[in-house]
Design a binder for these strands. Structure first.
Lengths: 250, 250
DNA sequence: ACAAAAGTGTTTCTAGTACACCCATGC
DNA sequence: GCATGGGTGTACTAGAAACACTTTTGT
């Protein structure tokens, strides 16, 4: 009776230091001109995870999507006008260095940052070539994008999810910039390196990046040791007794 | 084309110190005799959240369910034989002191504990009147119950979710027993009290509980200050700078 | 008096933060 | 030399775990 669709909020950290989402512009009513998330009807012989990967393959090369996970179900009866359509929403992440070819109606749009809670507004940056904001989101896709952005922000803190937004190899300060964009607050490169190193998420490649035009010490290159999601900081509290200073069991 | 159902894994900590799930025994094939989660078809004019509360009202008094949240979508094409049926699964929690009237085919069944990871098996308890194990779960409901149990366990550590499994008023050691059952590992009453008090989740009622038959100091009664979900320990790491020793802003 | 259960005080540990300082490069 | 960016060493802090000890009851 009711149809089922899958929708993907694919996020990437843009060069300008913004979170961007992959969206396509609707050419027809309803919500003509507004931006919609890629997705489509669930097929008869696929589950939602398979379906979202299939749908994404039509927009971007799926090999470029480093991580996909379910966000939840959006099922308000009137969420799309006309028919009843239930959506399973996904978060997808693409490393910042890949710029996949996308169809003509599709583009990376800047996700508006969440309201800074309590903290004063961050310094105004000299606006470089940033993607245009997601001014008009079709249907309830704005809610889905916000959920995706929040999920990314939360998981960066207690998992190794950084691997999905970072290039294969990177300098610590480049990684810091990605974290700043995704978290929305300043991050110290010094401490970021220490936290990720202590958790054994990062390893040096041995190579170094050449310094910029104004000099400076060449930065060492790092990579994530693991490229699948791992929870690294679960049970911050009330953890099993006797696990005080134990490192991770090998 | 494809139907949509909602399913609720309603959990409770039983008197015997086990996690129990509300289930009903199927009288017909397929999976006759196995235990299934309460739920049913999504109505045309309701979203999944509304629907699951409606479905639960047929099994238990919804006022007794202290917390409900979405777990995810289960959509494998063959998850139920015959037709295509997509399920949105929910976690529900009922305080340990309520024992709602349930239909004849419905009962609380013990959820098998998760495999103890690394830690040695907990002490063998003298088995009291524990609910029978969920030996045969219908369809993919076993997976859903496991997801519910894991979700509860994780959220107990970084939210105030304890309010949903505890009675209105309780002693610290009673609360400790609930946490032990849900977490699956020993918890110190001393430290539990301190952690929850420091986070301002607990407040004394002023009353005390009478000691048991063998004496002992009467225990003070406490309650949760809040009875809606609140994240208390987010961003354990990489939190915004300058928030070092700041308490919660009033 | 003694056992049992509850609760407090105090120490120790660890992860994270802050910050001063040293290193390597371009000009 | 000196400005610039990268990296290390080290002190400080807070939250939590561990454990000894005190308090309040029943027998």
């Amino acid at each position: 009776m009711s149809g089922h669709e899958v929708l993907a909020a694919v996020l990437r950290i843009g060069d300008s230091g913004d979170v961007e989402v992959l969206a396509w512009q609707r050419a027809r009513d309803p919500d003509r001109g507004c931006w919609a998330l890629p997705g489509g009807r669930l097929g008869d012989d696929e589950d939602v995870e398979t379906s979202v990967l299939r749908q994404l393959a039509e927009k971007v090369d799926v090999r470029e999507v480093a991580h996909v996970e379910q966000l939840g179900v959006f099922s308000e009866p009137g969420r799309v006008p006309g028919t009843r359509l239930i959506a399973t929403a996904f978060l997808g992440l693409v490393p910042s260095d890949v710029d996949p070819a996308v169809p003509a109606d599709t583009a990376w749009r800047t996700v508006s940052p969440p309201p800074a809670e309590g903290a004063p507004a961050p310094d105004v940056l000299p606006t470089p070539v940033r993607a245009p904001a997601l001014a008009c989101a079709a249907f309830d896709h704005g809610t889905i994008v916000a959920a995706a952005r929040d999920r990314l922000r939360a998981k960066l803190s207690y998992t190794n999810l950084g691997f999905a937004i970072a290039p294969r190899e990177f300098t610590i300060s480049a990684l810091r910039d990605l974290y700043v964009a995704a978290l929305g607050h300043p991050v110290s490169a010094t401490n970021l390196q220490r936290v990720l190193t202590r958790r054994a998420l990062l390893e040096p490649t041995g190579a170094v990046a050449p310094p910029g035009p104004s000099g400076g010490r060449p930065a060492a290159l790092f990579r994530f040791t693991d490229r699948t999601l791992r929870v690294t900081d679960a049970f911050a509290v009330l953890k099993p007794p006797g696990e005080h200073g134990r490192g991770p069991v090998p």
